[in-house]
Design a protein around this nucleic acid. Structure first.
Lengths: 234, 234
DNA sequence: TCGCATTTGTACGTATGTATC
DNA sequence: GGATACATACGTACAAATGCG
């Protein structure tokens, strides 16, 4: 089931990315888009809303809809962050440091909102972007939600596997972002020095039903990682 | 001009914050809210949408609307970040390190999207939360947009002044987030050591018309600052 | 300065689809 | 399977901001 407004949003986004509006920065009016796509005004407005949320466009009442140019080279846009491979594709590779099945202890259980003893996949891996170390990652997956993971699967994109193969719908991700010092093990893996800065995120991922399936800690290479957050006031 | 959906959103948010739904976590259905607030379904849905964007609630088709509990103590929610004082109120204080009016050089002009030589307010200040150093801040304001700033004003909340006194509508903020090492001057001001980590943001603030009025660099105390990013997939 | 056309924003109504319970 | 509840999609009318003559 694919909705009209998503189709329209994708189509407009595609036009923006391929440079259709590069000269003018101004998109067609809502009425124009209505006749182009042959849908109602609400549907057009809902599509535009998605693009606004993604930080691709902004609108001015009485004036029009404009391209929002703010991309920062190599930045990760927090608004549509669906995992590393979704953005960087084939440039991402991974090295698995540790992979085992463990029972949830108190701490993991509190994070994953499950009972102590629940079977958990624990994964520790280093991920590379263009062969350069990018992030050191510790993940805990609830096996009751994600019943099977293998060393081959986790060498690639776990999120892709969850969405495309398991057909589960990811709904929400809570992400806490801060800076910290690298431990010696992390420093070696990232080709930095112990005590150097790290951009750290703690991530809690939920399905659309609100069920928590993943808790992970990402230790980012501070020279390689920049996040982009495009905020709209209202 | 205050819209109905914002009024409804504020009212529901208020109820959530004051713990009305603490027992159940489940909010009234759309139909209930329609009869409570005596507005149309679209208006209710638009209000809910705001709360979803703020990360306060999430909805499950066929089931209902639920409170999203994910607040992290002392975290700054990137979704509704309108400046430090807006969140922490009277617990914020500032020390002005430098304040002067300068003509824009090439670099500033490129950031503020103005011509070289445009009068600029340059401000350097340390901001404290509960008397503890929180962030070292460098700001550049376009004087053509913000015509007057004084040492007294910048000791408080500049954003509050812009919105309440100048009656300008802030529209968008682009924020680049990364980690870096502290310089010795920053370290002294933040009561840390040179080379310690810092959570850094580069911020570009625009009015609703898209006009850039502020570029600032925030060097956050890495032990005190945590950002919270609540993402919704769609 | 004023007025009008254009364009987006708000608000209402209705019908139908789809997921949950 | 039926009732409930949210999601999508169509329509209309008027308000508010912008831009041009």
């Amino acid at each position: 089931m694919i909705s009209k407004y998503k189709t329209v949003a994708d189509s407009i986004e595609n036009d923006i990315q391929s440079g259709v509006y590069n000269d003018v920065d101004k998109l067609p009016t809502e009425d124009d888009l209505i006749s182009t796509f042959q849908v109602s005004r609400n549907t057009i407005r809902k599509a535009i809303e998605i693009l606004v949320k993604k930080g691709l466009v902004f609108s001015i009442q009485g004036s029009g809809l404009f391209v929002r140019r703010s991309s920062c080279e190599g930045c990760v846009n927090l608004e549509n962050f669906h995992g590393l491979t979704a953005i960087f594709k084939d440039n991402v590779s991974s090295k698995v440091i540790d992979f085992q099945q463990i029972p949830a202890n108190e701490w993991v259980a509190s994070k994953l909102n499950c009972s102590v003893g629940t079977p958990i996949y624990y994964i520790e891996r280093v991920r590379y972007l263009n062969k350069k170390p990018y992030v050191y990652e510790y993940s805990y997956y609830n096996k009751e939600i994600i019943p099977y993971l293998s060393k081959e699967l986790i060498a690639g994109s776990i999120y892709h596997y969850i969405q495309e193969d398991l057909r589960l719908q990811i709904g929400y991700v809570d992400r806490i972002i801060f800076a910290d010092k690298l431990t010696s093990k992390q420093a070696i893996a990232l080709d930095l020095n112990e005590g150097d800065p790290a951009l750290v995120t703690h991530n809690l991922a939920m399905l659309k039903s609100g069920v928590v399936f993943d808790y992970s800690i990402d230790i980012h290479h501070y020279k390689e990682t920049k996040f982009l957050k495009l905020a709209n006031f209202f």
